[in-house]
Design a protein around this nucleic acid. Structure first.
Length: 361
DNA sequence: CTAATTTGACCGTT
DNA sequence: AACGGTCAAATTAG
């Protein structure tokens, strides 16, 4: 708990520092007669910094009121191995709990997984859904969900038994637009395909369904590991207005190459972010290469949600996560769009290598 | 024959 | 009791 306070305190300070930093830069820029776009983005940065700082404060306020005591939840192991050797059970979240612990302590269902990644995928056809994300999944269930027109499908990694890989995903067809699928990934791949996720399709020739080529990530949603979520729970990359085929956004990737680009390891970050380790990392992992191995419609070999584990690996209370998630997983209706990067590449960096082969199909 | 899918039962949480 | 998530037997596909 103390760590949590420290972490939030530091985050708050960082946000304010960053806001001030960018404001200073903006002040300098105002002397030079160019780059309205840069000023724009700097203004965005400042605003988002303040917004996040405020959010942290609000979050603290609400959690301190409603959650005076948090249940004891041990830090989550990376793999289903208990420290004391007792059996572990999956907690339906892609996380694991010690049976003894469940018995002896809180039975309260954990409301948030170790991490979760939500994306929306648009398919050009009404086929079963977007299964071609580079991983082998086995369907293990389907449920009608209250208030939705279409059932939710449950998938687990094919190698759960053979390689003890506990990644799962849920696929739900959108009510409003049947060509859109909401996919929720839970857990991370510990199987060989997870390790070799650089170009999974090279080893999966059987998956040749062509409609994947017309998939577009509508939205890359939030990492819900609480620490990250609290910090940037509305990291909404608004790409949904990219209906036009023009590649006006650096976050839109060529559909015909299944998202593989030659700038996979590009480390460019906007100047406004380069001094901020978190944001620059975020930008590189989420925005320049906005894909998890699980959702590698843009597959980026370097990206792994665990990057964020390393960033914010404090064991923390899990209270409040669902609230944050539930209010912000909406793609188009995100009420707090506080992290809008300017989507016009010119605004970000005119030198961005858009002529990279494969970037435009 | 093996692997994947389907689908009702079951279980924990709310 | 309702709901969402998973299990597992039966069925289907390769």
């Amino acid at each position: 708990m103390e760590n949590e306070c420290n972490w939030e305190h530091n985050t708050l300070i960082n946000e304010l520092i960053q806001g001030m930093d960018v404001a200073k830069r903006l002040k300098e820029d105002l002397r030079t007669p160019y780059s309205l776009g840069t000023r724009d983005s700097q203004m965005q940065m400042i605003l988002s910094s303040y917004e996040k700082a405020l959010q942290i404060l609000r979050c603290n306020e609400s959690t301190s009121k409603s959650q005076p005591v948090t249940p004891v939840i041990t830090s989550l192991p990376e793999s289903p191995v208990s420290t004391n050797g007792s059996p572990l059970s999956e907690d339906f979240d892609g996380t694991f709990q010690d049976h003894q612990e469940v018995k002896n302590k809180s039975k309260k269902r954990k409301v948030a997984p170790k991490w979760m990644d939500q994306i929306r995928v648009s398919c050009d056809s009404s086929l079963e859904g977007p299964n071609e994300d580079g991983y082998n999944w086995r369907k293990y269930g389907q449920k009608d969900i209250l208030g939705t027109k279409h059932p939710r499908s449950y998938y687990r990694c094919t190698f759960r038994n053979t390689q003890d890989c506990w990644a799962t995903k849920q696929v739900q067809r959108s009510d409003e637009d049947p060509t859109i699928f909401d996919i929720t990934y839970r857990g991370k791949h510990t199987c060989s395909q997870g390790n070799n996720a650089i170009e999974p399709y090279k080893s999966q020739e059987k998956q040749e369904k062509p409609h994947i080529h017309n998939n577009n990530i509508i939205h890359h949603a939030q990492q819900s590991q609480e620490s990250f979520t609290k910090f940037s729970n509305t990291l909404t990359v608004k790409t949904d207005n990219l209906g036009n085929e023009e590649m006006t956004c650096p976050f839109t990737f060529p559909s015909t190459s299944y998202g593989y680009t030659t700038q996979e390891n590009h480390s460019w970050v906007p100047p406004a972010l380069e001094n901020d380790s978190f944001l620059s990392s975020l930008f590189q992992t989420h925005l320049l290469s906005p894909a998890t191995p699980e959702s590698n419609y843009f597959s980026s070999p370097s990206f792994n949600m665990n990057d964020f584990d390393g960033f914010y690996n404090n064991p923390r209370s899990e209270s409040g996560i669902t609230e944050i998630i539930s209010t912000n997983t909406s793609v188009t209706n995100s009420p707090i769009p506080d992290f809008h990067f300017p989507l016009d590449p010119v605004e970000i960096d005119p030198n961005f290598p858009f002529n990279t082969p494969g970037f435009f199909s």
